[in-house]
Design a protein around this nucleic acid. Structure first.
Lengths: 243, 243
DNA sequence: CGCCTACTTGACTTACTTCAAAAACAGTGG
DNA sequence: CCACTGTTTTTGAAGTAAGTCAAGTAGGCG
């Protein structure tokens, strides 16, 4: 089992080159970890966080809270991700952050990170890039929910999550954990619950994938990718995964 | 008429505090300006830009290109904005950037900006923050297109653009220029062209706003804001505008 | 004057939402 | 071990918002 520090290094290396001194800097972070129950909020809209969060295990989600308690999920984060690195330079949270299933998170005080930037600007740039990839994923979500047909849209989401899981080595063969209920999928993909269920059945019928109990099984990756109009370029990884 | 350098300073100051040395650094940028025709691309998907763009006049838009030439517009940028500051640390463009009406843009070589960061880290942080506000706007767009009713959605877009115009002093009283056609609104708001037109008429009928020939007229700001479920917090400005 | 683009309007159709109810399942406690 | 409760998933049926299609108007420009 990796330390949080090692997970962060591995994550940043997916898109950035790190010098040995950068890595030493990360190693020196004093990190406290904490367990979250399923559905528990870690940060709420309006908060002024003083620590950055690193996902250690499980999955976190960012969401907007809407009138009447409805949610719009914005993004999902798995081990190694820094789901609110933006909090470093933005005072107030404009969205909330919660655990999807049970999860472990590590907190790193902002102060410590800022000091590290002063010593190692290149580390700051790596984390800046992390926030930029984040933004690219948001852009893709706009297009996904706005311009793609429902089935394509859902396939695209699963493609992204599976691809990212593979990049981080979090898949088990053609499976990976995506601890979402149908209601949460609905609140992610701008579909009604009934439609989510039916679309999921269509995808299963297509023979490309299955999704049960928070577990995704990819049966035909290439076809699923085509079905979901998925092209991983927007993830801005240093190296593409083999198909 | 302000110089591009001054526009950038003013823009960054909307969310960040700049030291005099930061401003001097910006003043020292050597900037070349260029005119763009309506609809002209400045950067294309897949490009590797070596300059950052600063909007001097007119409006630029970022968009994803989809199968069959359809577009999904992602964000709009007015004078003072740096619509692809992310290009500083992300190699390949995952989206394109075009002029909406005729526009003037200034280009600042990446190299020059990076050197400035080395001398003035606080300037780097201001521009980092600019990219983070950008991301917050993308998140809001996800929610807007995914969770809001069509009329609310359209009202929200106009609220955002008018509010931002006011912050930058680009409005003329209760009017401001938004050089979008109905087709482009459709490709922004995830609606069919016919629906855009009808929704626009509903908004006019509500007496809160009008939109003709790329010109927005806000008649009842507070009501429009309510209609559009608009709350400016996500723009992360240092000071709120008076209502 | 004629062409092109932008906007407008109406009628038709349907994919989706909404509503409602039941089945499956997990967890709790008797 | 089984009944009870709550959540999640499944399915059906009905109604409608909005997409598509198609035609027409208006305006701008060479």
């Amino acid at each position: 089992m990796d330390s949080p520090q090692q997970m962060l290094v591995r994550n940043l290396r997916e898109h950035s080159r790190l010098a040995d001194d950068d890595i030493d800097e990360i190693r020196s972070f004093s990190i406290t970890t904490r367990e979250l129950a399923a559905d528990q909020d870690f940060v709420r809209q309006g908060d002024r966080p003083e620590v950055a969060v690193l996902v250690v295990s499980g999955m976190l989600a960012r969401y907007h809270l809407l009138e009447g308690g409805r949610r719009q999920y914005l993004s999902f984060h798995m081990s190694g991700d820094l789901p609110d690195s933006q909090g470093l330079f933005i005072d107030r949270m404009d969205h909330a952050l919660c655990a999807l299933g049970p999860a472990t998170v590590a907190s790193i005080p902002h102060k410590q990170i800022l000091k590290a930037f002063a010593r190692r600007p290149s580390l700051g740039i790596a984390i800046w890039r992390e926030t930029l990839v984040d933004a690219a994923i948001f852009r893709e979500a706009i297009t996904n929910n706005s311009a793609r047909a429902k089935q394509t849209r859902m396939a695209h989401l699963f493609c992204e999550l599976f691809y990212r899981a593979r990049v981080s080595g979090l898949n088990r063969g053609n499976k990976c954990s995506i601890p979402l209920t149908l209601v949460q999928l609905a609140e992610t993909l701008a579909m009604a619950l009934a439609t989510v269920n039916r679309t999921l059945h269509q995808l299963r019928a297509s023979g490309t994938m299955e999704f049960h109990d928070g577990e995704l099984v990819v049966l035909k990756w290439r076809e699923l990718q085509k079905l979901g109009d998925f092209n991983a370029d927007y993830l801005h990884l240093k190296k593409q995964l083999p198909i």
